[in-house]
Nucleic acid binder design. Sequence first.
RNA 1: CGGGGCGUAGCUCAGCUUGGUAGAGCGCUCGGUUUGGGUCCGAGAGGUCGUCAGUUCAAAUCUGGCCGCCCCGACCA
Length: 579
Amino acid sequence: MRLSKAFGKTLREAPSDADMISHQLLIRANFVRPLAAGIYTFMPFGYRVIRKIWKIMSEEMDAIGGQEMWMPNLHPASIWQATGRWHTVDVLMKVKASGNREYAISPTHEEVVTDLALREISSYRDLPQMVYHISKKFRDEPRARGGLLRLREFIMKDAYSLDTSEAALDEFYPKMVQAYFNIFNRCGVPVIAINADVGAMGGKTSQEFVVPHPQGEDTFIACTNCDYAANVEAAEFVREGEKPAELMPLQKVATPDCKTIADVAAYVGVPTSQTIKAVFYWWTPSGKSEKDGRLVFGLVRGDLEVNDVKFINALGGGSLRAATEAEIQAAGAVPGYASAIGLDVAPALDKPGVYVLADTSIEAGGNFVVGANETGYHYTGANYPRDFNVSQIADIAQADTGHKCPHCGHPIEARRAIEAGHCFKLGTRYSAATNATYLDENGEPQLIYMGSYGIGLDRLMAIIVELHHDEDGIIWPDSVAPYQVHLLHVGKGDRARETAESLYTSLQNAGFEVLYDDREASAGVKFKDADLIGIPWRVTVGERGVAEGKVEVKRRDQKDRVMVPLDELITYLHTAAST
RNA sequence: CGGGGCGUAGCUCAGCUUGGUAGAGCGCUCGGUUUGGGUCCGAGAGGUCGUCAGUUCAAAUCUGGCCGCCCCGACCA
């Protein structure tokens, strides 16, 4: 490609609203252009990178038996209604067409694969299968952000496995995980695989592939000693603290103007870990409307926080919002001074009373300070189960820096990260909803076991730039660089230009992808652009070198420059590129 | 959806407090100059100041609504 003919140009300054380095550099270097929030055009350079990533993904998927295909983006509402996700996936884009037809614009493709499985898979002889495609996805994100990090329209590689049984799925799954590591490694992106919450995808278990990054939107927990790592929504930790040998009597004390845990602990003179915090949610079961929900009273030790996702999972799904003051009072509790003492505790979710969901931490410690359900008063010496009852005890507290690892007991820490990919063991979540079955060896219908595995290509491209750049610009790893060689000529005379012209042809004939800066611009401009665009090899043709029959070769990621005889250039690049 | 910031030339921004003929740098066009790290000089083109309404003799500037964009939070295969 001749730079003089390229569509678009590099920018000296990035748009002021580009916050992340990858966003700034990809715009400045002419790889992408914004159309609207979360919607970008891939310029020719950017599209070449996407194609490189695409090829790597195809190779790794094919290597484990994947078959590449291409599924539609416009989905009839019926397939989303069949799995129940028409109303539950709130980022689902919907369009109305003439007549009364409604469509979803695909945010993901479980529904289409399930529909295909229903039609194409009839016997155990048809299984296992793994299909994948790379295509656009559309999500009505409430907030696009971080340039290419969270988009409303994006490119995803999504793969789907179909198996006869859970055991078969368990056997296949590690191959996919390994393929994911291969993809990320080949793209120059070291990832950490962590256990995660399955979220709206449903299913059993999932693993997230994350890249630690201060501007990431994910928080995950990593042990400082062993290899334990998990998304904060799934991370476990040790609840430190022992039940006291001697239980104090329950005693009501005045605690004027103590509405927060910190106030109460300071006033009474105990650590926050010797208090119990009360939180109130209005919980709506999945598939129900809000009026069919109920109040859920959460209890967690005062030094900990409730994690909403863990809370929902403990209740078996659904959604949460903060309860109103009126709803709290209707349950007989007093906001700011609430506890489970004296409440009519419901024994189960379908029974009347106040449903109290407590974290396991209420058993780690004792002689707690808790609310007295009376303004201005708390109890001291509260102990479970002597003084109050709960409906359910579960892991609902958020792990954080300083807590102890559930595996080895060493300290864990919370870190921010960008999610680069996700693997889900869906199990029969979708096949059961649509009755996608096959006939086994005995002629009995059995549900198909599914898995789904996604990586965002545009997000990956942004991550690559986040990890591979310096103050001058992008430093593309060879595997995904838009071109391999950035050829340019400097100097006044014709010889450098003529030599560069002939090199442009011979390098391409030798199989190299060449970006040729043939502009009549000053050396400084050309070097700055070369650094900004970030192609691995730079070949500079200058008058002085040409006089000696040599050109200068420099790697974008290294300082040193080498003068290489013209007739050895192709051999030199071939040799260097293969080592 | 809550909090904060912003919207003036293709890009970065000044002008707004105190209303009175719309500016600079970069980029672009033309001429010259320079030629190994965003040369320098000169001449140009380019803007209904996001939008709608209000106040006023007069609005980029003051007031209100709407739209758009960015960040934090909520949310998030």
